[in-house]
Structures are given as C-alpha cells and as structure tokens.
Nucleic acid binder design. Structure first.
Lengths: 344, 344
DNA sequence: CTGAAAGCGCTTACAG
DNA sequence: CTGAAAGCGCTTACAG
C-alpha cells in the first residue's frame, strides 16, 4: 500500500522528475501530464514521504516543544498545558507538526533527541536547565523561550509582566480596604514567583502598609497541596494575626489555601478575601470563584510559535522580548456577587 | 556546527562505513578505531541525523497521538491530558519521540499529516471520526484506540469499564440510603457517557429504585459550564423533587452542578450527596472534595503505548481489548470527614 | 577488521 | 515542457 514517486512515474509513463514537479507544483508541466499524474496519485492514495523530502530540503516542518516539569507530567498542567494547546493550534495552521517532550533530570538527553530529530525550531517552556540551553546554542536550531527563569542576551523570551500584575493585585486589595495581607510566595528561584512577590510587596510599601516578615511564607513548590499544607501549618498564626486577605503567587496555591480555610468554616470573602495569579481554568470554577491576575497563556503560545516560524524562515523578528499585559479578574473570592444569588 | 558522518570519517582517517559501525555498535571494529572515532564524535558534538537514519531504516522512532477535541484545545484537558502525559513518559523511556495533534473538523488532514510524517504508529484518543480511521486503515501504520466511541473488530481498544463503574457508584449511593438520585447524563453518543448512565440506571433498578424519567437530564456537552447551567435550569425541579443525591457521568459536570448548589447554600453532603466519574485532579481539590469513580488515565496511556510498541516491533499482542478496572473514591461530597475538621 | 558501492525516496539544477 | 543525474546523510550487505 506504500507507493513511491517511482511507481507513480512508471504508471504514468513519465519520469520521477516530472511527477515531483506535478506534485509540488513547481516547474513547468503540461496540463495533460498533470491530469495523468494527479489521477494516479488519487487512485493510489499516494502520500509523499515526508522523511525523504525533509532529507533533501533540509527542512522537516517539525518543531519541538520542551516543557520543564518538576514532579509531575505536564501536558495536563493548567498553565503550561494551555500554552501548549495554543502552540499546537497555531502550528497546525501553518502545516507544522509538533514534537512534545517534557523534561526532568534527563534534560540533555531530551534536547539531543530534538536535535537528532532535526526539528526546524524549538520552543522552551519554563525552567529549562542552562546546560540544555547551552547545548542547543551549539546548533543552528532557532529557539524561543517562554516564561523561563534563565534566559541570556540574544534569546527571545516571552513572559508575562509579573511584577506589574502583582502591583495591580496589591492596589486592588488596598483599594478594598485591606491593610493586612497574608502572602504565600512560590519558589523564589523562579522568575515569576520572584517578581510577583516583589511587585506585591513594593506596591504595599508604597501604600504605607509594608508586609511584615511573618506575613510572607515561602513555599518550596507552587502546588495546590503546598498551599493547603502551608495554610494548615500557619493557621494559628493566620487566625490570630488579624489578616483580612490572602495573596498567593499563583492560583494553585491560592486554591489550596482556600480549601483549607473553607474547611475551617472561614467565610470567603466576608472574613478573608483571596487573590491568586495566572487565571487557570479552575479559578473560575471554584466555589467561591477565585479573583486573580490573568496571564495570557494562549497569547504566549501563539506569540512563541509565530516568532519561531519567522526565525525558521529567516524573516526579521521585530523585538527580542515580548512582555504580555496582565489583567485583574475580579470574582467571588473578593466579593463579586454570585450570578444567581437570591434570584428565583 | 552541523557535522556529518563524512566529516568524522575524514578526520579519523577511516571510511564512513566504519564510522557508522562504531556509532551504531554493530559489526566489528578494532578498539583502536573505536577510540579514534569516538573521540572525534565527542569533540565535534556530532549528532547523527535522525532523518537520514529514518530514511534508510524505514523506521522513524516517532509515534503520533491524535486527540479529538470538540470545542477546546485539548492538551490541558484534565482527562485526556493525563493520558497524553502517560504516553509521553512511556514513549520517552523507550526512545520514541511523539507528535501530538489535536483534531477538530480537519480530521483527515491531520491524519494525513501523521502518515506523511511517517510515524511508526498512532494512538487515537476519544471520538476520532470514522473517515479518519478508514483512511488510516489503508496504510500499514499500526494504531491503538483509547476511549473511543467507534471502534471496529480487529482494532485494539483501551477503555474503562464504565458500566461497572457506574454500578459501583449506584450501589454505594444506595448503600448510604439514597433512594432518589438526580442524574446529569453527558452526550449519549459517546460510549462512556452512555455506559455510565446505563450502569447507574440498571443498578438502581435492581435495587428496586428505578430512576424516573424526570430525574435524568441529558447534557449536550460534558463540561463544567453545562453542569452548572443544567443545575440552574432544573433548580426548581430539583429543590422540590425530594432528591437526596446527585450523580453526573463525569466530574466536570458534577463540579459545575456542585458550584451552583453551593451558591444556593445547599449543604453538601448533608442535604445532597454528589458523585462524579473520572477522578480528574480537580475532584480532590474542590471544597468539598468530590466522591467519584476513578478511571485509570495513566494506565490507559501506558497500556496504549506499550501495546503500540509491540505492534510496531511486530511482537505478538496478547489481547485485543483492554478493559481497565474502575474504583470508587470516597470523598467529602458524600460524607468523608475533612482532615482537619475540628482539630486545633 | 575495513572500505566501496548501492540504496532509502525525494528534489533540483542542467541539458535537451 | 521533460528526463538523466547527482545528492541529501545515513546503513548494510559484499568483497577483501
């Protein structure tokens, strides 16, 4: 069932060159020949062998997406998964196929993989190790980094304006009258968590309501479980600390903390207002839904792919850093009314 | 920076054949030659060109994963995303790379894509169109189906025992004393939702507590929003119907319905017990956490890949259908105590 | 133990 | 407008 150009040529009584020209649409061919060849292509359900084509064209039309993962697999991740989705969609539209690879300690090995596979380009998401990046730099493969913690000059990097987003969150809470916020801060080695804490702290300082040392708790991971655990551990402190609000540097931790609070029958937002960061799907689904700062995950994916495609085609790339605009999303956890509250 | 076997050969003063032998480890080569070649490979950071190798070996070491999506992108999907993750992990372990493609109307085109790309095999997840399957059948590419609605004889199909799972859920609710359950049933064209409704209904009938017509509501999608909307629309009916429990054919709908109920200040599980199906990550994170029937998503992915690999290597494949065992997971939404309740 | 040669399935100048 | 030939970067019998 697997036909080649040679077989088509034989049946059509023309040369392989001609068949190739007809199929690719490049070069001159008579209408007559075209019909003849195309008909056979149809009959045989011929599909050109992409591997052979890639070989001569030195172009695979594949891109690779490398996603860092800490503990868990990553495709289902509410944040990175969304970025991946956007990349998949954009790439398909431009006839690229995409290799997906999640990466743990095997860093170098997986990068090699991609390199051996001869992808036309690479998108690196999150905290890809420096050694991996160095290794990639040694090749001519273009790459784009998304939400990374370690990018160097010359790298194209797509990020959210995390510091600004955190300031918006702080301003908003301050505006609501909150003067004492408990903060759950994710791993400070990660750019996002670092900037989010920084932005929140600075904004509060500017408002004259500095965060005390004891009101900021450092998380070693940024998971739901961590948020829950920390809230549990600091519950006594929290309860007696006079806190009226809670800010976490991402939604997952905020949600975890919220679950614990709800289990203690704390009323949200009446007793404690909660704000997260990211706007993962879950945030709006929770009860109460979570006020958060939205990161344009889809936009990150689209931009990453679009820029990579330009790089691959050696078109000029406008800028070397893309900083997306964050946006406050107000929901029930800071007081937005429930849709159906009191109705019916 | 892109070296070939030819360059290695030149520098080592041997032939390409020899270099190839050293690198592949096949065929005899003197220790001396090996050292010489390997040293240069090191120096040059040589990576064999996978495309060229695939060409001659007629084997790419790539597999493709095709996931159906209805409305939304899919990688971040809490159910399919998990399966994908498991496939990614297993595949990487055996040195495969994986193409991921989500599919909507473009069905045929995306399958072609895979076929042109010469993947060694395909994993088809969820409701892949019959035309796509037919098209794939025309080629020699082995494939495995996961959680599909339309598989034919001879196809290898991996599914959860959905009917059985629903029976377990029904038995459990009955055992708790529930005699009047409101049911949210997802699209009946999908195998899973169909069997889950069927199993639940039959089990209840056997217990002598048949579901009345009005207690089963058909959903047109199986999303969170749909669960919420339906619960809202049937709220009056539900409130006055004397229902003590709610079953949805998947977690997302159950969660959506639950959010609505919580917003009406319905106490869960005291007033209404809720049971879902799938055990997506969210289920355990919700407040109250959701009792559900777990589908072994990771196992599905692992089995799918493992079988596909056997197919690719033309090893005998044990069975032609894999039916995974569902498992009831009891949580707060049907009465499990909160961990920290009352403590401290 | 090693090298020359053919071939995997295409594309693309180059003649004609 | 079309065909013969070379080549993309490997692997693998086949001689030696």
């Amino acid at each position: 069932m697997e036909f080649t150009i040679k077989e088509i040529a034989r049946r059509a009584g023309v040369s392989k060159s001609t068949v190739s020209r007809v199929i690719s649409g490049k070069g001159y061919t008579s209408a007559e020949t075209q019909d003849k060849v195309l008909k056979i292509v149809q009959e045989l359900q011929y599909k050109p062998n992409a591997v052979a084509r890639a070989m001569v064209l030195q172009r695979t039309n594949n891109i690779g997406v490398l996603i860092y993962r800490e503990y868990h697999p990553i495709a289902a991740h509410p944040f990175y998964g969304k970025i991946l989705d956007a990349i998949l969609t954009s790439a398909t539209n431009l006839n690229y196929s995409v290799f997906v690879m999640t990466d743990h300690e095997i860093s170098l090995r997986s990068a090699d993989f991609m390199l051996e596979k001869r992808v036309d380009g690479l998108i690196l998401i999150s905290r890809i190790g420096q050694n991996v990046i160095d290794s990639i730099k040694n090749f001519e493969v273009p790459y784009i980094m998304v939400n990374s913690s370690n990018h160097a000059d010359g790298d194209i990097h797509i990020v959210n304006q995390d510091e600004k987003g955190a300031r918006i969150a702080a301003d908003y809470l301050y505006g609501l009258g909150h003067r004492n916020t408990f903060v759950l801060a994710g791993p400070q080695t990660h750019r996002s968590h670092h900037l989010r804490l920084k932005g929140f702290r600075h904004s509060m300082e500017e408002h004259g309501t500095s965060l005390s040392l004891s009101s900021v708790v450092s998380a070693s991971t940024s998971t739901f479980a961590e948020g829950y655990e920390l809230m549990c551990r600091y519950w006594e402190h929290f309860r007696t600390g006079g806190y009226t609000s809670l800010f976490a540097t991402n939604d997952m931790m905020a949600l975890g903390a919220m679950k614990f609070l709800l289990e203690q029958s704390v009323r949200i937002p009446e007793q404690v207002a909660v704000v997260g960061f990211d706007d993962i799907d879950f945030a709006s689904m929770y009860s109460p839904s979570l006020t958060t700062v939205r990161v344009e995950k889809e936009e990150m994916g689209i931009q990453a792919f679009t820029l990579l495609d330009k790089l691959i085609r050696k078109e000029p790339v406008p800028m070397h850093n893309v900083e997306l605009e964050p946006k406050l999303i107000v929901r029930q956890s800071t007081g937005l009314k429930k849709c159906h509250e009191g109705s019916e």
